[in-house]
């Protein structure tokens, strides 16, 4: 068992803090080389055999450098395929993914039209980095299915987003006939699969948020030590240092909850959603503060502040908006305290 510390050190060496959003394709190769795609798989399946804490540590480090490699959707895609009880080519797909092929999971059901011949038409929005994917695991009317991107009636088109560290694509189906051999699970089982994997997605995203929040705070603190006005570093003013301290309190307490929930196997789906929301709101808060701490330079494209803020705003919406999860958390707590 590799120690967590070693894993973090290796990640920081591979992705040094001074290079934000390093090139996607090179990052992807590095991620695959380090075995992080397979981090949770048992060693007999060529995985690293590590647990939730280890994968959380990696996602934290990826958040720290605003990584553009789509590790989270890739891991979820692989997990979905491996969870299939019916997919005959399961082993073959796993092998292809282990070799670096990118097959992301798109979690949510989408409204698609089914023609009289059973062919599907419509758009599955929000697929990460689909231009480098060979296939997408999508929730079709019959349940999760592998959709090869070279199949007839399948195309992808990019829709530009504000966050420059990630790219989103529409998966466009135009009379696509699903291949029964690529079905992962029926509809009911797919919903159960979704509910089993969604907490993993929340945990990974929460780690991504808090890695990013910690990096944005570090960057701001360094700036406030260096930037001088009124013949002193601006970090000497309580008006700013108290706000930096508030950011620190929020980051550190959110991190404590992140690690607590990563270790705790009994955490519920809703509690993971609440954790992700809490972490994303912390990320948002710190990045908003970071821009204000930096003053005018924080509004320029050449400075890195906006990269953090834009990723934070996107993270906030992923896997369900904050209002949804807060309401669910409130409802669940109310029921538990009956």
């Amino acid at each position: 068992m590799i120690e967590l510390r070693e894993l973090t050190d290796a990640a920081q060496k591979a992705f040094p803090a001074d290079t934000l959003s390093p090139g996607r394709d090179a990052s992807w190769e590095l991620v695959a080389e380090m075995g992080w795609l397979m981090i949770r798989l048992p060693e007999e399946l060529d995985g690293l055999g590590l647990g939730r804490e280890a994968s959380t540590a990696i996602h934290y480090e990826m958040g720290r450098v605003l990584s553009s490699a789509p590790l989270i959707p890739a891991q979820l895609g692989l997990q979905t395929i491996l969870a299939s009880e019916t997919l005959a080519s399961r082993g073959e797909w796993a092998e292809r993914i282990a070799g670096g092929e990118y097959v992301p999971l798109h979690m949510l059901p989408t409204k698609l039209e089914t023609g009289s011949d059973g062919a599907l038409s419509g758009t599955v929005s929000g697929v990460f980095e689909a231009d480098m994917a060979s296939a997408v695991v999508a929730f079709l009317p019959g349940g999760y299915q592998i959709v090869p991107l070279d199949a007839t009636g399948v195309s992808v088109s990019e829709r530009a987003i504000w966050d420059p560290s990630r790219r989103l694509f529409d998966l466009v189906l135009d009379g696509y006939t699903p291949d029964p051999a690529l079905a992962i699970a029926d509809r009911d089982r797919s919903i159960a699969l979704h509910d089993a994997l969604a907490p993993e997605a929340h945990l990974a995203l929460a780690a991504d948020c808090l890695g990013g929040a910690a990096a944005a705070l570090d960057m701001s603190v360094e700036y406030m030590k260096m930037r001088k006005q009124f013949e002193r570093p601006i970090g000497m003013f309580q008006a700013l240092k108290h706000r930096a301290a508030d950011c620190k309190i929020r980051v550190v307490s959110s991190e404590a909850m992140l690690w607590g929930r990563a270790r705790d196997e009994t955490v519920s789906y809703v509690q993971m959603g609440a954790l992700k929301t809490h972490a994303a709101e912390c990320f948002q808060w710190v990045t908003e503060e970071a821009i204000q701490f930096h003053g005018g330079i924080g509004l320029t494209e050449e400075h890195q502040c906006h990269l953090f803020m834009k990723r934070a705003m996107l993270n906030l919406q992923l896997c369900g908006a904050p209002d949804l999860w807060k309401e669910r958390a409130g409802r669940a707590a109310l029921a538990a305290l009956a």
């Binding site: 307490s253 959110s254 404590a256 909850m257 509690q271 609440a274 954790l275 929301t277 809490h278 209002d323 999860w325 807060k326 309401e327 669910r328 958390a329 409130g330 409802r331 669940a332 707590a333 109310l334």
Partner: peptide, 13 residues
């Protein structure tokens, strides 16, 4: 419910 959910999570943190 949202405010309560937010509070519960804050207390957990």
């Amino acid at each position: 419910l949202r405010d309560f959910g937010g509070l519960v999570t804050q207390v957990d943190a």
